[in-house]
Amino acid sequence: MELTVGAVQFFWKPEQWAEFHAELADVPVDRVVLGELVCSKRLPFYQDLIPDAVARLQAAGKEVVLTSLALITLKRERKLTAELAGMGCEVEINDLTALSYLPEGAAFSVGALVNVYNEGTLNWLADKGARRICLPPELPLASIEALAKAGAARGVAIEVWGHGRLPLAISGRCYHSRLYNRPKDNCQYACEEDPDGRPVETLEGQSFLAINGVQTLSDSHACAARQVEKLRAAGVSALRLSPQSKGFADLCRGYRAVLEGTMSAEALVADLIASDPDLRLSDGFIDGARGVDWSGLREPA
């Protein structure tokens, strides 16, 4: 199995964005998705850094893909998305709007925020030129198996959300702005304060979600480490690791070691928890009753 690094979901300072991607060149991953997924207002702050990051990652042998926004409504967002096709990299669509701009027959990837739930939709996307699909994180193993099989028949690689806070919802409303009683048009980039999202707790102090501008994420970090054998058997060809502000290079190395069989899933989980004692993990969407469920022990044995 391969490793794909997803687009950064959060609003990072330009220096942090540049450093993160420079470091990735030396990390054992196969593919990196660049660009803005969540909010078009963020892009002007770092878009000039993208060409350098592309060049450096390609020179290091990584495949580089450019993402579309997850929710495209405004005219300038439509224009921005239409321009993606001409930037010399494969496009990952995360809103079907992006597909409407691609040249007929161009190969493209499909991100986790497009609803690919069944073979009919997979086949329709394959007809359009899809060669790789990262499945929606909420799909259970039975669906993953069926879609990996259908993908194999059409030459479409199937990827699964491997690690990171789960993208649970996207909205027209910005929750960071709402938190500060600001209108979205005058958000003052409040989301920049939270490089991994703003934690949201319940009334009883249970950790539950994280706010990231117009996006809502899970509090728990999805972790497919304990599911690797099942996913491999199902025919899944890659895991997607979602960027986080701390310890990401080590995390990638850990997953690589698990895929190569030089490290056990339990050892990786123990390392992850040791590096952040407050970390909560989940793999319930793949193989549990609810998305938040975790198949392993809370504490390392």
């Binding site: 929710l71 909420e138 996207i170 609810r290 998305g291």
Partner: peptide, 21 residues
């Protein structure tokens, strides 16, 4: 709906029951 419809898995995260599925 406060979230973009058909693009929300809050319910399946917390309960296992999904609007989409």
């Amino acid at each position: 709906c406060v979230m973009a419809e058909g693009r929300c898995s809050l319910s399946s995260y917390a309960t296992g029951k999904s609007p989409n599925m």
